[in-house]
Simulated assay, not measured.
Amino acid sequence: MVDVLAEKKGPTKEAHLILFEKCNLRCSFCHQDHDSTVGLDADEIMRKGIKLVEQSDLEAPIVINITGGELFTDDIPDWMFGYYHALGEYLLNNFKRAKLVFGTNLVYENVWRVERLITMLNTLSDRELQTVSLATSYDPAGRFNPAQRELFFKNLERVGMWVDTVNVVITKQNIEVFLNDREGDEVKDLAYDYDLYFDHYIPSERYEEHQPTESQIRQLYLKLAKKYPLSYPIAAWKKQAFNETTCRSTKIINKDGVVTTCWSEAGKDAVLDEGQGLAAKHAAEERFIEHYGCLSCEYYQRCGLRCFLHHSFVEGSTTECEIKLLFDEIL
């Protein structure tokens, strides 16, 4: 199998360890089973780390996203944090150039446990080659009630020094909020203080409710270019002549310990086998770049080429690329 975008994807690999899916929030666009306790087991947590090490190039630079569900919710017992620490230490001891990122919604009272975990792991890391950080999400629509939003910002003040990115999911509902200037003044602060990244919605079984069209996404980006030019990917498009692809062929170890790809996350036509998932993704990449003539596009090196999983869920036969039209306007 030839990866036609290998050079465009860059040298850094990416992995996603989903330790379990149990969560204290009920985000309307999330595909996970928030009541599931599958994977909520100390031995299973370590087995996932071992599996990743056994199947990876330990010399290559890698970003390892460690998530739930919600790892840090108040009903997670203290002793589980010992296993989070053991997992992080194991990964740091094996991957020479690693960035460990713990994903969290920041909606819980016992934030001191998170501070302790990240501080302790950072003392173990090689500061020149390894980092340990947090990533969180802020969505004006479909994530928080007012009390949860207040707690989010309270905790962000406490752990913000370790927050790597704040993601916003590109759903139809979030796009509508931004286009109508209803996102709130706090988003301006997030864009200034953090890497505010607008991330593609992973289609779930409710994708028809949440999945935006290509045109809607372009309208969002146009708005962001004017109002939040420091947000990503807008800032990267404007500053950098070369940008790697949005998709890194992420290796996922899911709550059951199964090694899959991002294609296993989709509620429609899920592919749980890693080899089959990669084959499906490569086929989608080839269809995409042939359909839009990406290799001959003047913006090819600057463009992240979007999320191929997203594009496979969006109907349409036009060969006119909305992102190319966007670049024509903002560059």
Rank of each mutant, 00 (worst) to 15 (best):
V159A: 04
V159E: 02
M161N: 14
W162H: 09
W162F: 14
W162T: 09
D164A: 07
D164F: 08
D164Q: 10
T165Y: 04
V166G: 08
V166S: 05
N167Q: 09
N167I: 03
V169K: 04
V169S: 01
V169F: 00
V169I: 15
V169R: 00
T171N: 02
K172E: 02
K172N: 03
K172H: 01
Q173W: 08
I175R: 04
I175Q: 01
E176A: 15
V177T: 03
V177W: 01
L179Q: 06
L179M: 09
N180Y: 09
N180G: 10
N180A: 10
N180M: 07
N180W: 11
R182K: 15
E183K: 03
G184H: 11
G184R: 12
D185G: 14
D185N: 10
E186P: 06
V187I: 14
V187C: 02
V187G: 02
K188W: 08
K188F: 14
D189A: 15
D189N: 14
L190M: 12
A191I: 12
A191G: 07
A191T: 13
A191R: 04
Y192W: 13
Y194N: 11
Y194M: 07
Y194R: 08
Y194E: 03
D195F: 08
L196K: 00
L196N: 05
L196I: 12
L196G: 03
F198R: 01
D199I: 12
H200R: 08
H200W: 11
H200G: 01
Y201L: 05
Y201Q: 07
Y201D: 07
P203D: 09
S204V: 10
S204C: 10
E205G: 10
E205Q: 10
R206Y: 11
R206S: 11
R206V: 03
Y207P: 03
Y207E: 01
E208P: 07
E208H: 13
H210K: 12
H210M: 08
Q211W: 02
P212W: 00
T213F: 00
T213K: 11
E214F: 12
S215C: 07
S215V: 12
Q216N: 06
